[in-house]
Write a protein that binds this DNA or RNA. Structure first.
Lengths: 305, 305
DNA sequence: CAATTTGTGAAACTTTTCTACATACTGCTG
DNA sequence: CAGCAGTATGTAGAAAAGTTTCACAAATTG
């Protein structure tokens, strides 16, 4: 089999005849044209005949045009992603970027943040937290601003698997709850910067009350991190176009997922049962799909975009 | 054109019939088999008929098998490079996986979801939404369950750049607000499945009131999507270990970021100024780093009062 | 001029696409 | 639970599209 059409073509260039070379050049210059062409159309594009196209395909190592075209499709998309990837890697978003560039760059940065967070994760701390949470009498969670969303998310997920957990928006109520912690309780504070006053206070109070304290932050040496019993750090670098919290929040949520999945792993059946029940609970709030009158007719073009 | 076959297949899964779904599953599980099969061979592999394969191809958005197969070739090689890049096999999480495996797999799935969402995104719709939002008199946002977090997130971010936007937890209050929409208002509903009753209701009411309706969902043919003026779809594949919403929520948030960054691009100075002001506003709630007497010694771990 | 390359046209062949219809299955109603 | 309506699936054959193959003439090259 030919590993990469483009490579194959370039390598065989010297052995190709004049017409074949013309074909090769067009293919290399504009692979897309191959994707949309039949043998005849491609022949016309190259100002030559079907026979020559066929001969060309054999000359570069394929059985025939069909196979050649599939290989082009594969190699082309591979090339495209690579190019895309290269163009985007680590470059800042500029005010003049196109929609495509913006989307690609943001996606790249966020995907990267998740990966880096995973790679840099303290697995020992992760499992220690999972253990603490699994046996906890109560779990209090606090986060301000966009970390508040992460806090809610974590709370929801813990709650769904049957753990008693709370998340507070109002600081006064939060402090009350954290203050009522006892040994065996877990207090979790989330702050990207690790300097949020409220987050630190909640953990301090919970610590005094004897709870296990957990910090989730991007900065392992931040005030929040240094005073917590257990720390998980995200690895997010915000860029100029941050609206305060894009990448960091994504990384935090990924971190929550690591925690929760690890937790689920422990008591598979029980957790699964809980999940099933919560799923059923909202069933009546789901609408059925509008069943299309019949299966799509073969005559008319496929419906929609 | 279909940007990514695999995404297209997964998104249309709910609208597929039983046999078609069997085909879909085989294709997703073993795309290579498609590369080497004619319609007849694939039909045999799926224990079905040529006609059903043809119907399947149309159902997922292609003209016919030929086109479908080319798309598979392209997407498959793309996937291969990506897998290579991430250096991870995307296998299911098993109850016996180590912490490292769990974390790596979850991270991979989520990073992938973001990238696929980006690649399959309808950029025209994106910019249309940005335009609508930028000029909107008011923006109402609704999401239930974990999509509620996305809704809050979007609301926060729009609010921070100075746009009048609301997000509701209480359905009654939400309906009131959506009902008060006028032309020039924008209503956004978020639902992973696209079948959430409440989400559909809010858009219906807003539509009647003359607002521009926007759906954010994973399924472009879901009831929510088909009734909205503008649709953005995520590309998340939930796995067995979902707690209802891990990957989908991450993809939704990424989508929010695409929107917001694109929005910021438009009025750079103005938005930046707004962001700076919001940043300053919470300054007094930030603690300085504890200035350690010396740099933290490498010997002893950071103090844990 | 001999050797090679290229284009032409036609035929055989493969594969896909389309159509129509019979059968099986599903959910629902009386 | 029988029977009905509507949908889904499979079958089969014809038509269309596209491909491979071939033989040979024309053009090109050294």
């Amino acid at each position: 089999m030919v590993p990469d059409v483009f490579v194959a073509i370039r390598q065989r260039m010297p052995t190709l005849s004049k017409t074949e070379r013309r074909v090769a050049e067009l293919v290399l210059a504009d692979p897309d044209s191959v994707l949309h062409s039949t043998v005849n159309e491609l022949a016309e594009l190259c100002d030559t005949s079907q026979a020559s196209i066929a001969r060309f395909c054999r000359a570069v190592g394929f059985v025939g045009y069909r196979e050649f075209r599939m290989a082009i499709a594969a190699a082309n998309s591979r090339e495209e992603t690579a190019r895309n990837h290269f163009r985007v890697a680590d470059s800042e978003i500029s005010p003049t970027d196109s929609a495509l560039e913006v989307v690609t760059k943001v996606a790249y940065q966020e995907a990267r943040a998740i990966e880096e967070t995973a790679r840099a994760l303290d697995l020992t701390a992760l499992d220690a937290i999972v253990d603490a949470v699994r046996g906890a009498a109560r779990i209090d969670i606090y986060g301000a601003g966009s970390s508040g969303l992460t806090a809610q998310d974590l709370q929801q997920k813990l709650h769904r698997v049957g753990l008693t957990s709370f998340c507070f928006g109002d600081m006064h109520i939060a402090l009350t709850s954290f203050a009522l912690s006892r040994p065996g309780c877990v207090a979790i504070a989330i702050s990207h910067s690790g300097v949020t006053l409220e987050a630190i206070q909640t953990l301090e109070i919970a610590h005094q009350a004897g709870a296990t304290t957990v910090a989730i932050t991007n900065f392992p040496e931040s005030p929040l991190a240094v005073m917590a019993d257990l720390v998980l750090t995200t690895s997010a670098r915000e860029t100029r176009y941050r609206s305060g919290a894009m990448v960091s929040r994504i990384a935090q949520m990924a971190l929550v997922d690591f925690l929760v999945v690890r937790l689920l792993q422990g008591n598979y059946d029980e957790a699964n049962e809980a999940l099933r029940r919560t799923y059923d609970a909202v069933q009546s709030h789901r609408l059925p799909y509008p069943r299309a009158a019949t299966r799509p007719s073969l005559k008319s073009p496929p419906a929609r975009d």
